[in-house]
Simulated scan of single mutants.
Amino acid sequence: MELPKYHETFMPILEILNTVKVISSRELARKVRDNYYSELPKELLDKKTSSGANVLIDRILWGKSYLKMGKFVSYPKRGVVQLADKGKQTLISGKLLLSDLQNDPDFISHRSAVQSKKDEIKMETIDVDNSSPQDLIDNGFSTIETEVKTELLDKLKEIDPYFFEKVILILLKKMGYGDFIETSKSGDGGIDGIINEDKLGLEKIYTQAKRYTENKVREKDIRNFIGAMSGDTTKGVFITTSTFDEAAIKKAREAHHSIILIDGSKLVNLMHQYNVGVQVKITYEVKELDNDFFEGE
């Protein structure tokens, strides 16, 4: 007997959610464990990860996270889960394999939102026998990082637009720019913030932040942003949680001003890099033999 893989918990998770309106993530994991896996040996049920977490509970929670990416479940508010209409339809069909999820349009779109255009989504079942320990570590960290970034982008799309503007200024401050000024929320002419390019404030950079869920930033938005600079500066940063259409990219590229465009993918990459809106959960130490120690033997 062995513990289920995270993707083998998909259907049990959906079945439990079908019996409740909403439930906390931890309570969901416990119910899945108790209803579907209680017959496993105690040593398996009590098995811990290197960080001290229960392995089975951890896998169920990962299963829930992947179901969220595919819109089979939803998070109506912090810490709770509920079954989505798509999940109800899946219960009717009676199965959801890992391959089904990998090919699901919502899942692909969700994960793609945080990938740079240079990267391809690679979600494969790892061949443990033919992978080095370093391969397994790298793949694990990559998976966790993608999950965090997708959740971060979702959160950015939900927060108050004014707070989103402040998040952007905090990020730029973390990136080493000088002090920032939040502009008035009325009559600001399309400028959300002003940051100092240097610590002394000799050069100004204007910012515009658009918290879009689906809409793309269009050429008109870039044109209005450039016009709002009114000759005060030639440098601007336009940030969005979505993407820019081709006309907007072309307008920014051909403008006499220096306009930097940051889409949702690049934004969460920067926030992850500079620890804005995320925090370190666990630190692992990987040790190797110190050959220098034994040279004097």
Rank of each mutant, 00 (worst) to 15 (best):
K5I: 02
Y6F: 02
Y6Q: 02
E8A: 00
T9Y: 05
I13L: 02
L28K: 05
K31L: 06
K31V: 06
R33L: 10
N35K: 09
K42T: 11
K47E: 13
G52A: 10
A53S: 06
N54H: 14
I57S: 09
G63R: 08
S65R: 12
Y66A: 07
Y66R: 13
K68S: 13
G70W: 02
K71I: 14
Y75N: 15
K77R: 07
L83P: 04
K86N: 09
T90I: 06
L98K: 08
L98Y: 12
S99P: 01
L101T: 02
S112D: 09
K117D: 09
K118R: 14
K118M: 11
D119V: 13
M123S: 13
T125M: 12
V128Q: 06
V128P: 03
S131Y: 03
S132V: 01
S132K: 06
D135H: 14
T143H: 10
T143F: 10
I144R: 11
I144Q: 08
T146N: 11
E147H: 08
L153S: 01
K157H: 06
I159R: 01
P161E: 01
F164T: 01
V167L: 07
L169V: 09
K173L: 02
D192E: 10
I195W: 11
L200M: 11
E203P: 05
E203W: 13
I205K: 07
A209F: 04
Y212I: 02
T213H: 14
E214G: 05
R223S: 13
F225S: 00
F225L: 06
G227T: 08
G231H: 08
T234H: 11
A247P: 02
I249N: 08
A252L: 05
R253Q: 15
I259T: 04
I259E: 00
L261M: 00
L267R: 02
L270A: 01
H272F: 15
V276C: 03
Q279S: 10
V280S: 14
D290R: 08
D292H: 13
E297I: 15
